[in-house]
Nucleic acid binder design. Structure first.
Length: 802
RNA sequence: GCCUGGGUGGUGGAAUUGGUAUACACGAGGGACUUAAAAUCCCUUGCUCGUAAGGGCUUGCGGGUUCGAUUCCCGCCCCAGGCACCA
């Protein structure tokens, strides 16, 4: 029998808008979400990526990880942890500056406004952030320490200046890191990236390539994320082999990198990258220099995108008059330049083995170069002393005799300067006499000057270079005339260490007190997007590793576990973007249905880590559930008040089952099924008698998902203060299953009926009654007619094989 | 091309170590209440043959193992994300 909610609902419809505001005030006044340093409780550091406060405000992508991390935070508090769940603003960078330019205001102004709006939206959702630890990367009190940390890199020799070809976005008019180039295009605006020779600051992330790979091993991260990051770092083991270069004019040498030293006997020509430094030296020996020069020029004009265009035909030019000696065969081979060899990887030179490499083969076929097979069925042939060896043995032998072992990484050093206004000034001073001089610590922060005009110049110079009064300073060392570094840091700077600042956000003496760091680090669970795997997640691990080596942080790895959320697609199944016009904002939903419904619907969409399409049609289902919940609890709260009530045995099973399921699902980040279980519970418990204790338990476990409604229900049940402060209920395992179960009866593995019996029933107990089922006798008759075998699974099924 | 995920009703998605496939929710259809609508409540809802009783089929496709396969094995196809002339 079902209880009829309809009359009841009309009387006391739950009004989320009113209730939610009320609780926001109470939470704030009672500081229920503020975390204490050095609490005696075990700590839990729950982190969600802090946002760039965009003008468009909160979107559903944010919602996904904010709500998920909020559930985990609330759950963890109830589980007895001292939970730190902080928030802040990653407000420097290109998007913020471009937005300000578009609005025709100062970035300081638009950023402050956007933050206010964002904060309002986040609070409207009832996310339990600890605002006492709020950080803002554009606050001088914060970026003082970003600059200080940069100087530690500089002093350790890990920040260096170099003039080289870098990725340049012609639209944003700034250099970009390798990680910011996606498909040959600017990560921010999608403009094809060009190459430009520029003086730039670099951070030596390559120094940590191996440690960054090694550190992944013990992390509790999803395997695909680890794999993706490891692939980006791109370790490969191989050998460097030296080739002698000869010509009529003179001799030289070229070193190649190969992962297949075993194929050395098959190396029938050599290829250099068009930018290879050796070319200048070889110039006098090259008989067709004009032709070669033409090719070099052509190659340099190509963008990365053009150069690596899919199935592009190979091209190159022979260096006539120049030869290399294959160290194994001692034979003269021709030397070429070709843009399929990259100057930035390995030594910028390869030995070409066309018989065993697809690219070399294409090239050899085009230019009619010799192709020599040296391996058949994994065994060496045509290879002199290597013949009949396995490829592995051959590799070892070649390395020992002709080369040396070499580990190569795809990772490049991090281009760390930007030619834009809205970023942390790099705290260095250029002095003609003393060279580069760090700004003394007591003069930090180097404040970003307020200026009217901050458009990018496009010349490769930062807009700051035009501010004479700011640029010209005295050298801290010799007091002579000197100039400030005018480039700013990339937007990834502030986010590379913000998680450390949260542990001690107001410290003016240090970036964070060692004791605070020791208490809170590492982060126990980190929520965020998949798109940061090879950006923020890599950069911040690098910073933390470096700081660990400097003795400044207590742990090597900052993020113990990582929970990436799936991408949210628009209702059209396309990736959400402003240009497609399919971006959803939660504001309207909060207004119409309330925060609790919006939060729960978001989680109900599908598994947290999976890509989901944002389709608002289903939201009414969650809304109905919460209304039913309201009606059910308040109806029973009234009964409870009148006198003592007991759980019916079914209700007792249901509540224990629910606590178990919800606990396990939160631990497993499976919110969608947790919510399904709540719905099932409400559907099934409606007609049952329920005790006050069970009602309270129910409200406590609902609170992480629907905190506002739960608070209201909690007071209705006579609870004091906040449901947030209540301990997570335990469940009784023995009461999570009912006494009898439905046994499945099968014939030849096919379902034929059910028998209800005690869970502990034996085969003997069931056999006769199962056999007696009409469907069973019939099915046995249709088969062989006799029972050959009986399979019995305790508590589950009985299967007759006929 | 390489590396990851993933393919289950009209839709989003469930399913313990191999044990009733399609939980939960949306949508749709029918009904109740209402002057009416909204809201709410009840029933039906994988496909298919059949008036019905009842039967057959079904987790991308094709095989295999098993009493029994969405789950394990082999071979394909398709979709999404990442990388991409990385030697």
């Amino acid at each position: 029998m079902r209880s009829d909610y309809s009359k009841f609902l009309i009387k006391i419809m739950y009004n989320p808008q009113k209730t939610e505001k009320k609780w926001h005030k109470i939470w704030k006044a009672k500081k229920v979400y503020e975390s204490k340093d050095f609490s005696t409780k075990p700590k839990k550091y729950v982190l969600v990526e802090f946002p760039y406060p965009s003008g468009a405000g909160l979107h559903t992508g944010h919602l996904r990880s904010y709500v998920a991390s909020d559930v985990v935070s609330r759950y963890s508090r109830a589980k007895g942890f001292e939970v730190m769940y902080p928030f802040g603003w990653d407000a420097f960078g290109l998007p913020a500056e471009n937005y300000a330019l578009k609005m025709g205001v100062q970035p300081q102004v638009s950023t402050a406004k956007n933050i206010r709006n964002f904060k309002k939206q986040v609070n409207a959702l009832g996310i339990s952030f600890d605002w006492s630890r709020e950080v803002n990367t554009t606050d001088p009190k914060y970026y003082k320490w970003t600059q200080w940390l940069f100087l530690q890199f500089y002093k350790a020799g890990l920040a260096y200046e170099a003039e080289s070809m870098i990725n340049w976005c012609p639209k944003d008019k700034t250099g970009l890191a390798n990680e910011e180039v996606i498909d040959g295009k600017c990560d921010r605006c999608g403009t094809p990236v060009e190459k430009k020779m520029l003086r730039q600051w670099y951070l030596k992330i390559t120094e940590y390539a191996q440690q960054l790979i090694d550190g992944l091993k013990d992390l509790d991260w999803p395997e695909p994320v680890k794999v993706q990051q490891a692939n980006w770092i791109g370790r490969s083991e191989g050998a460097e082999i030296e080739f002698k270069i000869t010509s009529e004019v003179g001799e030289g040498k070229a070193t190649v990198f190969t992962t297949r030293p075993d194929t050395l006997y098959g190396a029938t020509y050599l290829v250099l990258a068009p930018e290879h430094v050796l070319l200048e030296k070889l110039k006098p020996a090259i008989q067709n220099w004009t032709e070669v020069q033409k090719y070099i020029k052509k190659a340099s004009n190509k963008t990365d995108l053009q150069r690596s265009a899919l199935e592009k035909e190979k091209s190159g030019a022979e260096l006539k008059g120049v030869y290399a000696i294959n160290p194994a065969t001692k034979k003269k081979v021709s030397v070429w330049i070709a843009d399929y060899v990259l100057n930035t990887y390995g030594t910028g030179a390869i030995m070409a083995v066309p018989a065993h490499d697809q690219r070399d083969k294409q090239f050899a076929e085009k230019y009619e170069l010799p192709i020599k097979q040296v391996i058949r069925d994994e065994i060496m042939i045509n290879s002199g002393e290597l013949n009949d060896l396995s490829t592995l043995q051959a590799k070892k032998k070649i390395i020992a005799k002709y080369g040396k072992l070499k580990i190569q990484y795809k990772l490049r050093d991090w281009v760390f300067s930007r030619q834009r206004y809205w970023g942390e000034p790099i705290p260095l001073i250029h002095c003609d006499k003393c060279g580069i001089v760090p700004v003394p610590e007591d003069q930090l922060p180097v404040i970003l000057p307020k200026v009217k005009k901050y458009e990018p110049t496009g010349t490769g110079e930062s807009p700051l270079a035009a501010i004479d009064s700011w640029v010209n300073v005295k050298c801290p060392k010799c007091s002579g005339a000197a100039k400030r570094e005018t480039n700013t840091m990339p937007q990834w700077a502030g986010s590379s260490w913000y998680f450390l600042r949260y542990t001690d956000p107001k410290n003016t003496k240090r970036f964070a007190d060692p004791e605070n760091l020791k208490y809170w680090m590492p982060i126990d669970v980190y929520f965020g997007g998949m798109e940061h795997t090879t950006l923020h997640l890599l950069y911040s691990r690098f910073w933390n590793l470096f700081l660990y080596d400097q003795g400044l942080v207590p742990v090597k790895e900052p993020y113990t576990s990582r929970q990436p959320h799936g991408i949210i697609l628009g209702p059209d199944g396309e990736k959400m973007s402003k240009s497609r016009g399919n971006v959803a904002s939660p504001d309207q939903l909060v207004k119409q249905y309330g925060a609790d419904t919006t939060r729960m619907f978001q989680m109900f969409l599908g598994p947290h880590e999976q890509t989901v399409s944002w389709n608002e049609e289903g939201i009414v289902g969650v809304h109905r559930f919460l209304q039913k919940t309201w009606a059910w609890v308040s109806e029973n709260a009234a009964l409870v008040k009148k006198g003592k009530t007991q759980d019916s045995s079914k209700a007792e099973t249901l509540i224990n089952k629910l606590i178990k399921k919800v606990t396990e699902d939160i631990e497993g980040v499976k919110f969608n099924t947790a919510i399904s279980s709540f719905m099932e519970f409400i559907n099934e418990v409606a007609a049952e008698k329920i005790s006050k204790q069970s009602l309270q338990k129910f409200v406590i476990i609902l609170a992480p998902f629907a905190p506002h409604l739960s608070e209201e229900l909690w007071s209705l049940l006579g609870g004091k203060a906040s449901v947030t402060l209540e301990a997570w209920p335990e469940y009784d395992q023995s009461k999570t299953v009912s006494a009898t179960v439905q046994f499945v009866v099968q014939v030849n593995g096919k379902f034929r009926g059910n028998i209800e019996a005690p869970k502990s029933a034996s085969q003997k107990d069931l056999e006769a009654s199962a056999k007696a089922l009409e469907a069973v006798t019939k099915a046995i008759g249709m088969a062989s007619g006799e029972i050959k075998k009986i399979i019995f699974v305790p508590g589950r099924l009985i299967n007759f094989v006929a």
